[in-house]
Design a protein around this nucleic acid. Structure first.
Lengths: 231, 231
DNA sequence: TCAAAAGTGTTTCGCCTACACCCATGT
DNA sequence: ACATGGGTGTAGGCGAAACACTTTTGA
């Protein structure tokens, strides 16, 4: 039985990027096959004796010349045996975040192009890739509430308003700036630098950075990140 | 490349059962191969043109004659290419719950035996099965807080104290009965039947049941299940 | 001096927590 | 009568929500 199994194993990555109040997803233009020329999620078949995480990182490098900031397994799609017209293929989807410094794309072997698409301008994609993106977005929204994951989408040093806007943009909600700031600062893992960022008109902003070491330490001491919103 | 891929795809299931204040995991005795005679998680290779969920349900039926009450994908293990000595194999692990009415096991083809093991009496298992169980237990504990998943481990009708004890047993915490009851009842998805259960000595208990329809309806209206505990 | 964005404090309200005694049944 | 488990109310504290004006800069 096992020696006649003809199921192929692929990985796909949903990479989110954020800039100037917009959430982006990375897509690549398919170079070969039935969907040649169409935009799809980066990914591909896993190599023999290659671990899944390695496969994702390899594909991201090959197809878009990108290194991600955060990577976690999302879901394995394999209930529909005809999801890939090339034959029975399961796809282990990964969820990734890059910060603006890593937004540069260097298309390479497998893609004639790689490009960031605003999340709300993504059309119908081949395979079940729209479903995969939906699931990833759901995960991103959920995690913003209970993991300090937003920082992986921002520069190392950022004005507080960037964080505010990121939350409001991705969650599509408005909330009170004062309460949000109070809450985040009270958690005690933001370092206030003495740098200041000027940005056109308006009062210049202090820059903050996420203290990951401190956060990890707090996490071990039964601290739980959590942010709620109602309005 | 894709036509020379030699990676095998398996599914494994972590099935939890609960009875008289103990949490159990279903294991089966391996019938063939290197680990013959050892206890392992139920599971096996996926068939050609078989969906993943179908594969799990099939294996559970074949190996233990069981139908589960709740099933969700847990995680796909595939970073270690040598996790299975038979060759590069990835395993899509599923998380399942059965209620006491379905605790009966009918061992069949692939297992010379199937048995419930108390979670704290599980020894070292082959493959990475201990790691898989740990991850499943973590998921179970987490979900008890934010999904009404405990009901899938109880009878349809249950005295309130069963629910209480289930939470305390699985989370390994003690908490105030009055507060717990108040909280759960205030959520408004328990139906109080007029039946009463007598159980040895002590005052007989009203029986409750989980109103799944009502819960689903509430969920659609932005209601979120959540239970916190401190002490 | 006006526009634009940053920064800040207090009151109110609801929920979680802590806590102990009575009730119904079997023996 | 006693042992066993079921059932119940209230007061206090803490954190979330609501809410608007001042500050600093560029134009």
């Amino acid at each position: 039985m096992s020696n006649t199994q003809k199921i192929k194993v692929a990985v796909d990555a949903i990479v989110f990027g954020y800039e100037s109040n917009q959430l982006f997803v990375l897509l690549i233009k398919q170079k070969y096959g039935k969907f040649k020329g169409q935009w799809v999620l980066p990914g591909g078949f896993v190599l023999n004796n290659e671990g899944l995480t390695n496969a994702v990182n390899r594909e991201l490098k090959e197809e878009a010349g990108i290194e991600v900031n955060y990577l976690e397994q999302l879901y394995t799609f394999g209930d529909d045996t005809k999801r890939d017209p090339r034959g029975h293929t399961i796809s282990v989807a990964y969820f990734a975040l890059v910060n603006p410094e890593n937004l540069n794309l260097i298309p390479d072997t497998d893609a004639s192009d790689a490009k960031w698409f605003p999340i709300d301008e993504i059309e119908k994609l081949p395979f079940d890739h729209n479903k995969i993106i939906d699931k990833a977005l759901e995960r991103l929204k959920a995690k913003l509430h209970y993991q300090p994951i937003g920082f992986d989408l921002l520069n190392k040093e950022f004005p507080f308003s960037d964080l505010e806007q990121l939350y409001m943009c991705i969650l599509e909600k408005k909330f009170d700036r004062r309460n949000f700031r109070k809450k985040i600062l009270s958690l005690g893992f933001l370092n206030e630098s003495n740098k200041i960022q000027k940005k056109g008109s308006g009062r210049p902003a202090k820059l903050f950075s996420f203290d990951r070491k401190n956060y990890k330490a707090m996490e071990k001491q039964r601290f739980h990140f959590e942010i709620k919103f109602v309005k």
